[in-house]
Simulated assay, not measured.
Amino acid sequence: MSDKLTKDTAIAHRVLELKENPSEKVDVFIGNPFQLGKDEWACPYRIVGGGIDLNLQIIGVDSVQALQLVFPIIDSAIVGTDVPLLWDGEEYLGFTPK
């Protein structure tokens, strides 16, 4: 996957802010799931800003599973960057249940 998701190509977009510098934004994009094989679907996602540019995809057995799996994967990817982020001023970023 070489095309990087943008506001124009994503099906969903969330803007986060750096905790130490709320004026600096981090964009999270989720792309449209697409079929790779008979029982294999991918859902692309991108996290960009604050020194991060992750452009990846998650695999599921169908489009629904790929879309379901992308939310906790995004949450884990953000935690793995060690960049403290906020969503609407809160530490809860909204990708996993509270």
Rank of each mutant, 00 (worst) to 15 (best):
V15Q: 08
E90D: 13
P84V: 05
A10C: 11
L54N: 09
A77T: 02
P84H: 07
R14W: 13
I52Q: 08
L36N: 12
L67W: 01
V61Q: 12
T9G: 10
T96S: 12
C43W: 00
E24L: 08
V28P: 02
D88Q: 14
A66S: 15
L16W: 10
N55E: 11
I11F: 00
I58C: 12
L85K: 04
A42D: 10
P44Y: 03
D62A: 15
V64S: 15
G31Y: 00
A10W: 01
G50P: 04
D62R: 10
N21I: 01
S76H: 08
I30V: 15
F71E: 03
E91P: 00
G80L: 07
I73H: 10
I59M: 07
Q68S: 14
A77E: 13
S2G: 09
Q68H: 04
W87V: 06
Q68C: 14
S63N: 12
P44Q: 06
F71W: 06
A10N: 08
L93G: 10
I78Q: 02
E17D: 05
A10T: 10
E91G: 02
L85I: 08
L56E: 15
P33N: 08
G50F: 08
G50E: 03
L85P: 01
L36W: 12
I78M: 05
D88E: 15
P44G: 11
L86Q: 09
I47Y: 08
Q57H: 14
D88G: 04
F95E: 07
K7H: 11
F95R: 01
S63F: 15
V83Y: 04
T96F: 06
I78S: 00
T9P: 12
D39K: 15
R14V: 15
Q68A: 14
I47K: 00
K25P: 11
T81Y: 09
G51M: 11
K4P: 04
I47S: 01
E40Y: 15
S2D: 11
C43H: 00
